[in-house]
């Protein structure tokens, strides 16, 4: 993993989330932990979580951009996607303690009047078996790609963050 050039980075929050005991679902938090161990600009903070909870809205409100890291069940196993995210207040979660990234962005917008640039970086998992605490080989390989994508996003100059149209695979 190549360290990004410090000094030009917008205040960035990276949130990796997923269950650590559901096989490849752990790729989000594991990628976050890998980033924590890597040299990062001081403007970048990283959180690893099991699930997305409401209080994260307050943390997102302090960031200029936020990058969510998650596993996906759609696509080919090992496939990495980068999508832009927009707040969605209609995406009311069906889980009392588990919000979707777009819902969380909507909470942030509604409560703090702040809408950071946001991306979702996903890797399609191969196995989500219960009580499985290892990534599949495909997910392990995909994690490296995820990390490179995150580094590329972090490396974007602060001035460019308001128009993330160049993200691959479209947006929500």
């Amino acid at each position: 993993m190549q360290p990004v050039d410090p000094g030009m980075t917008a205040k960035t929050l990276i949130i990796g989330y997923g269950s650590p005991i559901r096989g490849d679902d752990a790729i989000g938090p594991l990628a976050a932990e890998a980033l924590m161990a890597a040299p990062l600009p001081r403007e970048v903070s990283v959180i690893a979580r099991h699930i997305l909870t409401a209080e994260l809205a307050a943390e997102i409100a302090t960031a200029e951009r936020v990058i969510f890291l998650d596993a996906s069940v759609t696509g080919e196993p090992g496939e990495v996607r980068v999508q832009t995210l927009a707040p969605d207040a209609s995406a009311l979660s069906s889980m009392a303690h588990f919000l979707s990234p777009r819902e969380l962005l909507a909470w942030c917008q509604a409560l703090y009047g702040h809408q950071p640039a946001a991306w979702l970086v996903t890797a399609t998992g191969q196995s989500f078996t219960y009580a499985h605490c290892r990534l599949s080989p495909l997910a392990t390989a995909a994690m490296e790609v995820m990390l490179a994508e995150v580094q590329a996003l972090i490396g974007r100059p602060a001035a460019g963050i308001s128009s993330p149209a160049s993200s691959r695979n479209g947006g929500w």
Binding site: T53, A54, E55, A57, A58, E59, A89, L92, A106, W107, A110, L111, Y112
Partner: peptide
């Protein structure tokens, strides 16, 4: 979201207490 619109301070308080 209805609460956030009408009682934003209270909703923020809820977030902060959880935090």
């Amino acid at each position: 979201f209805g609460v956030m619109r009408q009682y934003p301070e209270l909703a923020r308080d809820g977030i902060r207490l959880r935090q």
